[in-house]
Amino acid sequence: MAIVINGSGTVTGLAVGGLPDATVDAGTLASGINKTSITDGGNATAITINSSENVGIGTANPAKPLHIMKTAGANTIENLLLLDCNVDSAASGKGGSIVFQDIAAYPNTAEISASRVGGGSSSEVKIKLRNADMLVLNSDGRGLSQFTAKAWINWDNTGTLAILDSHNVSSVTDNAVGNGTVVLANNMANVNYCASVNSQKAGGAANDGCTSNTNGPNRTNGIDVHTLRLHGGSNNNGFQDVDNNFALLFGD
């Protein structure tokens, strides 16, 4: 072990210059440390730097360049690292990131950032690979990517229309029998998204079914959905109210 800094609350643990370490003797480390910040007010070792140049906080045997350890109890999540963009500043859209790099010729391997959205209480976590957005998790519950649904909904319009569950939908409009409009809470970026709709009706004969389709072109704020009855051997086919109407949207 090259250096041990004892967290006695004083700088006595920084008396490292006397150690037989050429780097320390040259003053490189001593001049780079703000001595007053290295305290923990206790008697345990606060920071350990071993001969492999691994720094340990809470551990005397750091296994990686930075190793932070605090024993967590059962079903307890310990806050091991605090990245603070200055909570006393109210700047809009501010945030911080962790960056991974591999080869200088390419953009960053990955970047994970967390930021405030605009000037309100919303926040987001963004994961980038080679500087391209891969996934954005928004505090309103949306996961924005090419592989997560931008919106989905299940509603029943056999009586008073009821939204059974939904994601990123602000309302459904009951236009007529078997005719609904889904309006998104947050618009799609363009109309080239994929919308899948379907339906299910309880009961009915073996040759009785239903199907749904989007009516008219996609709009950035949602879709119109028609639900139709398909009854073999009868002339009762047409628009129908059913127990479950499903809509699922993927895209930008």
């Binding site: 309103d140 229309l161 939204i163 459904v172 009951d174 236009n175 809470a185």
Partner: peptide, 23 residues
């Protein structure tokens, strides 16, 4: 709920419960 005229037929807007919570 909201109700309005949609080309001669009454349209009824049902708010999504989750969106109401979001507001």
């Amino acid at each position: 709920r909201l109700i309005y005229d949609n080309s001669g037929v009454a349209a009824v807007v049902i708010p999504a419960p989750k969106f109401l919570t979001q507001l």
